[in-house]
Amino acid sequence: MKLVKSLDKSLWVFHVNSGSCNGCDIEIVAALTPRYDVERFGIKLVGSPRHADVLLVTGPVTKPMRERIKRIYDQTPDPKVVMCVGTCGSTGGVFYDSYTLDGPIDDVIPVTIYVIGCPPRPEAIIDGVVKAWAKLEELRGETKKKEGKK
């Protein structure tokens, strides 16, 4: 897995709804509007997980969605980042321990960044992206160190 610097500057996002109430989804759309305009950072919403670098997962993962989420995760080419948007996906939120759920999301797929809020404001989502950059930077540092040791 190669982490090039261009990855930070062009994160293509695929949005997965795992049974969310649409609140977080609306806030994600709000982050794309002219007011917040995440295209400034090269972030683009794409239609297929094959094109994506970031999976933006919302919702507490209902039982039928478990397999689908896993498949979408596998369909995304490496290197990839998973961002969990909203309290539901991070902890279960008000649906905690419900018999209809298989979540939260990190029980199903590995999550890189958690954005808390019900729903989180677009600023919080953009902050999550900044954290993802920091994480990628860290990972790049580690791979460099490993190569250096060799």
């Binding site: 897995m1 261009s6 500057k9 090269g42 290197p79």
Partner: peptide
Amino acid sequence: QPFWDVGKLFSKEN
């Protein structure tokens, strides 16, 4: 931006 996009796409898993 398109140069970064291409650079990233070429480094990703195929």
